[in-house]
Amino acid sequence: MSSLSHTLADSATMLRRNLRHMLRYPSMTVLLAGMPVVFLLLFVYVFGGTLGAGIGSGGGRGEYIVYVMPGILLMTVAAVAQGTAISVAMDMTEGIISRFRTMSISRASVLTGHVVGSLIQTMIAMVIVVAVALLIGFRTGATPVEWLAAIGIIAMIAFAVIWLSVALGLVSKTVESASNLPMPLTLLPFLGSGFVPTDSMPTGLRWFAEYQPFTPVMETLRGLLTGTEIGNSALQTAAWSAGIALLSYLWARKLYNRDPAAR
């Protein structure tokens, strides 16, 4: 077998290992999806009536749920990524990683197994979150093609954020700090166009909100699901995702390849 097919085979083996872990603890996936679901319910039922009136189109709760969905979906991405950092950090404390390091296997396969596993977990969490949203009245006129594009956008940013979380999980010395480091990611939808339009924010915050990576993602999703203007948001999303993914991958690989005893 060539080295490329070895890499693929080893990564598939590691993915099976991560999926087994996930299957054994399905509560973990449900728990990760639970956070965005709670925020969805909170924002729609507690704040939705008031916020809906303020989003410009002069709507109420029904309009707000449509507005808030992209932010909730990104929050789901961030929540799953937090789980990734935790499970990577936990893995590194296990002796089996030392075993993998002394075996003739593709080095990155341990990490790619985590990444692909978390991507699948993200999609499962998405299904749970969207199902709850549909139950409480989320309606969209999006076509199947637009839905597919939205899923593609989510997969793209999730891929980038998960690689970042893998690196954060590797750089953490304890599982506790691994669970805290990606925390700001779950707050990013708030500091962007996720819950209220950015033009209602004070200048400094608005500047951050408009240029932070999650805003173009949420604008693209909003455009695909509700038909608002997308503009160059899709392009920005692709650029941010590629940049974050590449840098995080290089960082994670460097962290993984250093001597384990130096941790």
């Binding site: 290992r17 087994r20 872990h21 054994r24 603890y25 296990e94 002796g95 089996i96 030392s98 075993r99």
Partner: peptide
């Protein structure tokens, strides 16, 4: 190794 290198979740 001295510390068991097995996967406890499998």
């Amino acid at each position: 190794g001295q510390f068991s290198a097995v996967d406890g979740l499998l």
